[in-house]
Design a protein around this nucleic acid. Structure first.
Lengths: 96, 96
DNA sequence: TCGCTTGTTATCTTATATGATAACTGTCGG
DNA sequence: CCGACAGTTATCATATAAGATAACAAGCGA
């Protein structure tokens, strides 16, 4: 199933909307991770060595079901030559 | 000891520089969290309810030694009316 | 002073992220 | 075909984040 299909199905059910958004955010996160690494011109194995961990763990981060801690994210970024802050974008349709 | 003093002492020892930077990043993170919550005009208890958790857990996040997972960060942000992405700032003095 | 609100701290339990090792796939230049 | 490289997957052990409850402290208006 494609991401687009998943999106359609998820959004058709209002209850899972936040779950989808979570999922989408996860994809974005992974994208940003991989972008940082490739920008730095590093392979997973090289990055793993800098971070004093294993390439399999890097793959796990970049592939699936990744829910890394803040410290893991900053270590990853720093190894790629980046410092990390959050970028909170205000949701226009925010209800309370 | 103030943050400034801590910074000075930490930076005087090259080996702990990254540790200090982690620490500084942690402070920045906490700042951003609290800012999001106060911007949303929420108390810890209110935010906790939205996130279906306890106010003590929110306090733990905002106070000390916080190392939240990405999903916790996004839930927190979303409850405050924000969507979250990473903002990677290139480190000018990056060596390899 | 007395409640009430907001936030903090301590503690336990449970869920899960991370570290580590090994085996596997696909790709590509020789 | 073969070896080297890049990435993936499975699995287990261990560290730790997160859920939950309770008690406490500070501030503040009635």
């Amino acid at each position: 199933m494609s991401l687009e299909q998943l999106k359609q199905r998820a959004l058709s059910n209002p209850e899972v909307k936040t779950e989808y958004e979570q999922l989408e955010g996860e994809f974005k996160l992974i994208d940003q991770l991989i972008t940082m690494r490739t920008d730095a011109g590093l392979t997973q194995a090289q990055l793993a060595e800098i971070m004093h961990t294993q390439k399999s763990n890097i793959s796990r981060l970049e592939r699936g079901n990744a829910n890394p801690s803040w410290s893991t994210l900053t270590k990853y970024a720093q190894a790629c030559g980046f410092e990390l802050t959050l970028k909170p974008n205000k949701l226009s349709d925010h209800r309370r």
